[in-house]
C-alpha cells in the first residue's frame, strides 16, 4: 500500500470491506440520492420493525469516499430507532471515518441524506395505510 493516502485507513477499510451491500427484498423504505452525471449515486433500503431499523442495505456508484460513507452509515444506524437514525448527519458520518479530504466532503458525502430519504419514504408509506 502507498504510505500517505488522501483517505484514512478507516475509509479504505470500509471501501475494501463494505458492510451491508445489496438490496432488501420487499423493503419498507427506499432512498436514492445523487446522479450519475455528478459521479455519485447512492441507494439505501431499510426494513423497519418496532420503530427501529431492523435491516439496511446500500448500493453505491461512486468514488472511494462515496462507498465508504455508505458502508459506515449502515453500521451506525442498524438497530437504532428511526428518530436516532434521522439525527445522524453527513458530518457525523465523515468524522466516524476519521475525516474525508475537503474535496470529498460535499459530493461524495450523501449517505446520511440517502438514509433520511429511505426513512421518509417509509413514513410516507406508513401513513395512508394507517
Amino acid at each position: 500500500m502507498v504510505e500517505a493516502s488522501a483517505y484514512t485507513d478507516k475509509v479504505m477499510e470500509h471501501f475494501f470491506n463494505p458492510r451491508n451491500v445489496g438490496e432488501i427484498e420487499d423493503p419498507d423504505g427506499v432512498g436514492r440520492v445523487g446522479n450519475p452525471v455528478c459521479g455519485d449515486v447512492m441507494k439505501m433500503e431499510i426494513k423497519v420493525k418496532d420503530g427501529r431499523i431492523a435491516d439496511i442495505k446500500f448500493m453505491t456508484f461512486g468514488c472511494g469516499a462515496a462507498i465508504a460513507t455508505s458502508s459506515i452509515v449502515t453500521e451506525m444506524v442498524k438497530g437504532k430507532t428511526l428518530e436516532e437514525a434521522m439525527a445522524v448527519d453527513n458530518r457525523q458520518v465523515a468524522s466516524a471515518l476519521g475525516g474525508l479530504p475537503p474535496a470529498k466532503l460535499h459530493c461524495s458525502n450523501l449517505a446520511a441524506d440517502a438514509l433520511h430519504k429511505a426513512i421518509e419514504d417509509y413514513r410516507s408509506r406508513a401513513k395512508p395505510a394507517g
Partner: peptide, 12 residues
C-alpha cells in the same frame, strides 16, 4: 463504475 474507485482497487 467510477474511475477513482477503480484506481483505489488497482493501487491496493
Amino acid at each position: 463504475v467510477e474511475g477513482e474507485s477503480i484506481l483505489l482497487a488497482l493501487d491496493s
